[in-house]
């Protein structure tokens, strides 16, 4: 299997009145087809910029972003996004919210087909029976589940998850991590998961990319070669804890707390 996402030497700076404000510096990430890439790094290091570059909503000053062997020059219909804020539309039912991407990507698809696909996904994440509810009638965790369904409804080959579990309480978050593993079995997809939770990155990722502080560059790449779907107990298993401590050390370096290894 080849790499579905290739980020090659991406450098980007925002133009501000005070001059260029560099956020990404020679960033390199490769994500094989069907695998999950968790991206961690100090806050404000340009992780969200990265998501917008992959989605084709922005273009880097230097370097290239490739999806499926094609250079990204515009938004693509084969990308799904979910954010920390579930951004569901309050005037639509949960079902209609999930259908939304299909209205853009497949306007000719019959309504019954769209609804069937949305119901299928909602059932997978345990939202059966909530199709006709309004978003405000659901809990935060349920809203985030619906948001994941919306990101997957049009069968994208890439999903971009920008801290989707960041605002949830610890137990709800663990529930959603498991849901994510279950979803991967039924809906194989390549994913970039931005997170600031190291345990999340180890539990959900097939590789973890640690970004350095701003401007962000690829500081460390760790392969998590543990089979999936992973049981929740794995969070506390020695092989996880071992990896966590390495990542923790890398984050400390990224934050500039230790002098060693930087730029090596």
């Amino acid at each position: 299997m080849g790499n579905l996402i290739e980020i090659k030497g991406v450098t980007h700076a925002y133009k501000t009145k005070a001059g260029p404000f560099p956020v990404l510096d020679n960033l390199n990430i490769s994500v094989p087809e069907g695998s999950f890439c968790a991206v961690v790094g100090p806050s404000g290091c340009g992780k969200s910029t990265l998501t917008r570059l992959i989605a084709g909503l922005m273009f880097p000053d230097q370097g290239e972003v490739w999806l499926h062997g094609e250079r990204v020059r515009s938004p693509r219909k084969t990308v799904g996004m979910a954010f920390q804020n579930p951004v569901l539309l309050e005037w639509r039912s949960i079902l209609k919210n999930v259908i939304l991407p299909l209205e853009i990507v497949a306007p000719a698809m019959p309504r019954a087909g769209k609804e069937e696909r949305a119901r299928e996904l909602l059932a997978m994440v345990g939202l059966e029976g909530f199709e006709d509810k309004r978003p405000s009638e659901l809990s935060g965790g349920m809203r985030q589940r619906a948001s994941l369904c919306r990101a997957l409804v049009h069968k994208p080959d890439v999903i971009i998850l920008d801290e989707p579990f960041g605002a949830l309480d610890a137990f709800t978050r663990e529930d959603l991590w498991q849901t994510m593993h279950e979803l991967r079995v039924k809906e194989p997809v390549t994913a970039v998961l931005i997170t600031h939770d190291l345990r999340e990155s180890v539990y959900l990722g097939d590789q973890v990319v640690v970004l350095s502080g701003r401007p962000a560059t690829t500081q460390h790449v760790m392969q998590i070669d543990l089979p999936g779907p992973r049981p929740l107990e794995m969070l506390y298993a020695p092989e996880s804890v071992e990896r966590l401590s390495v990542l923790r050390q890398q984050i400390r370096i990224a934050q500039g707390r230790t002098e060693t290894e930087r730029g090596a």
């Binding site: 917008r52 989605a55 084709g56 909503l57 515009s74 938004p75 693509r76 219909k77 990308v79 996004m81 954010f83 804020n85 951004v87 539309l89 309050e90 005037w91 939304l100 991407p101 209205e103 853009i104 990507v105 919306r150 049009h154 971009i160």
Partner: peptide, 24 residues
């Protein structure tokens, strides 16, 4: 984020306005 959800699928500015900004 509301804009990005549709823009990332290649929706036009008008579609984003009609489906999201106006009702909101």
């Amino acid at each position: 984020e509301y804009r990005d959800i549709l823009r990332s699928l290649g929706a036009s500015r008008f579609t984003v306005f009609w489906k999201i900004a106006l009702p909101k």
